[in-house]
Simulated assay, not measured.
Amino acid sequence: MDRAAKQELVTTLHDVFKDTGVIVVAHYAGMTVAQMTDFRKRMKEAGGTVKVAKNTLAVLALKETNSEGISKLFKGQTVIAYSSDPMVAARIAVKYSRENEKLVILGGAMGSNILDSASVKALADLPSLDELRAKLIGLLNAPATKIARTIKEPRAKLARVIQAQASKGEAA
């Protein structure tokens, strides 16, 4: 890789580290090409990206970003997974690491918050934005449903009483 290509990679990674929602750093030693391709494919389908870069270039790209604290994670064979949605990169990386023990989550960053591996796993287990929206809508609809049931209930009770009296009258 020539100097211009390295500079371009550092600039690109710097922009990524500056603008992404979450960055996950992992070791991938021992993974086959097919496994790495599968990991990249899953991440891309979910809206994230997987990048393998030289550690020195990644550390240079981290300078003057909110995520600068994760530079100590770049030792050995590291892979970077990132996405603008804070849940995607963490969820896919953790799920894949549970299926393939060769992908080891080291940590990451979410904005200026530095995450260890346990924090990345906890982030991956949180419900997605769509799930949270569905729960919120359910909570908002519940009172309206209860009000409608409460208003309708006295009439239903009255109808049952009348029906019971009518049944008694027919039986007698």
Rank of each mutant, 00 (worst) to 15 (best):
S67A: 15
V50A: 03
L126N: 13
A61E: 01
K121M: 09
G21V: 14
A109P: 03
A89D: 08
K72W: 12
V94T: 14
A90F: 12
R3E: 07
V120N: 03
K63Q: 14
L123W: 12
R40F: 08
K135D: 08
N100G: 07
T37M: 09
V10H: 02
S84A: 09
L13G: 00
I105H: 05
P127F: 13
T56S: 08
I114R: 07
R42C: 05
T11Q: 12
K102F: 06
N55W: 04
T56P: 01
G111H: 15
R3H: 14
G76Q: 06
D116N: 15
A5R: 09
V94Y: 06
G21L: 11
V50S: 01
E64V: 00
S83C: 07
Y82A: 00
V50N: 02
L132R: 15
N100L: 07
D15Y: 05
R42I: 11
S119P: 07
T20Q: 11
A134H: 05
I23V: 15
K41W: 14
V104E: 10
V50W: 01
G30E: 11
A26C: 10
Q77L: 05
I114Q: 08
K95N: 14
H14L: 04
A93T: 14
A61F: 01
G111I: 15
L115A: 07
Q77K: 06
R133P: 03
F39L: 13
K95I: 06
D38P: 03
S84H: 12
I23L: 08
G47K: 06
L136R: 09
G21T: 11
E101D: 13
D19G: 05
V52Y: 04
K135A: 10
K135T: 15
T78L: 00
G48S: 06
F39G: 04
T32C: 03
P127Y: 10
A89W: 10
L73N: 07
